[in-house]
Nucleic acid binder design. Structure first.
Lengths: 196, 196
DNA sequence: AAATAAGGTTAGCGATCGCTAACTTTGCCG
DNA sequence: CGGCAAAGTTAGCGATCGCTAACCTTATTT
């Protein structure tokens, strides 16, 4: 019955807003936030630029909603995986797999989140940052529990490094998606194992 | 006598051009290429915006020269390390160390290269892309030689992933620079070991 | 059928952008 | 000292930007 929740399609019917956000994400990822005009986004969904203001208060608001829902999705997914914790090592494996799957199925969203944080409104950026920090904490906890002999600062740096590893390949298509997901998961876990 | 060559300071006396490029890199990294105005760059080096045109033909040319010299520096350094090859494993270790050192000592340059490739002129982008491809090839060769049982496509994907791992932490300062360099090197090699 | 609200259009505003023009200052060299 | 080239200044151009205003079309509701 319930569809698997993906960011930006939150249960209620997706419709126009989601379509616009998806197109905007694609464009932001490719050209950068300031490199994309309101008319470009409109054209990408077949309407005129100003028509977008029937759905969003501003261009800033589009980016804000985009990054907000991504951060919320990651935090929710991460916390859920960490809560179901059986053994520490399997938790880490699940976190890796979760993040890899997200990065591969939403490459433009991952790219935008990585590159365009600085373009957010002060208010939006504070909120997104807070969510991201909590997501990192989930990872830090899992790393500390699973990898012996790694301090908190090291765990935090390692988490960021692994995000970079996973996030930087969304447009790499030398391998099929399945094989790439497997490879990235192995690389990430191999890196974390070496952190101790 | 000879100073260690760093990108953008190529032997001949650095002076104004280099100073401008360094300031521009910092700004591009923080706000994105289109988020930085010519006046901002000028102000960052204490002159007016239009004065920059005594040193560069255009804003595009600044980004082009910036990314060009970064790519050239990485390719040169990488090829040199690979040429001195003793054992395959030590080659890979040297490549990792080289890239880590560069990323940590020039965080803004690494950030700009990662995020702003799409903002280059067609001509510039082609040239930079060509250099980057050759740099990746150096890594693919080293990975294939050092890690048993990894095909070319996997090696290429792994190389990109390791770049992401190393490049995504330049502003992480939970650890001292020395400790962070050690950690990143271990993580990178751990990841590559798991690629096989 | 009339009323209403949602979602679209074009025209155009003020601000900002990259860049050029015209002029001034600075420092070196014969 | 006079001359000149390099490096800076301000004024302002054409283009583009985010966004608003005013209007139109369509579908739903009563």
């Amino acid at each position: 019955m319930s569809t698997t929740p993906t960011p930006l399609t939150n249960g209620e019917k997706a419709s126009r807003r989601e379509q616009i956000l998806a197109a905007a994400a694609e464009l932001f990822a490719r050209h950068g936030f300031h490199g994309v005009g309101i008319d470009d986004i409109g054209a990408a969904v077949g309407i005129s630029g100003p028509a977008l203001y029937r759905h969003f208060r501003s261009k800033d608001a589009m980016l804000g909603e985009m990054l907000g829902s991504i951060s919320r999705f990651l935090l929710d997914g991460g916390t859920a995986r960490a809560a179901e914790a059986e053994a520490p090592e399997t938790t880490l494996g699940e976190l890796v797999r979760f993040h890899v799957d997200f990065a591969l199925s939403h490459p433009s969203l991952i790219t935008v989140q990585e590159r365009n944080l600085a373009n957010l409104t002060d208010t939006d950026r504070r909120q997104v940052r807070a969510l991201q920090r909590r997501y990192v904490e989930v990872w830090v906890g899992a790393i500390s529990a699973a990898v012996p002999g790694v301090g908190e600062a090291e765990a935090r740096s390692a988490a960021h490094a692994v995000f970079g590893l996973i996030n930087s390949t969304p447009y790499n298509r030398y391998l099929g998606e399945g094989d790439l997901a497997d490879l990235l998961s192995r690389l990430a876990l191999g890196a974390l194992r070496a952190a101790g």
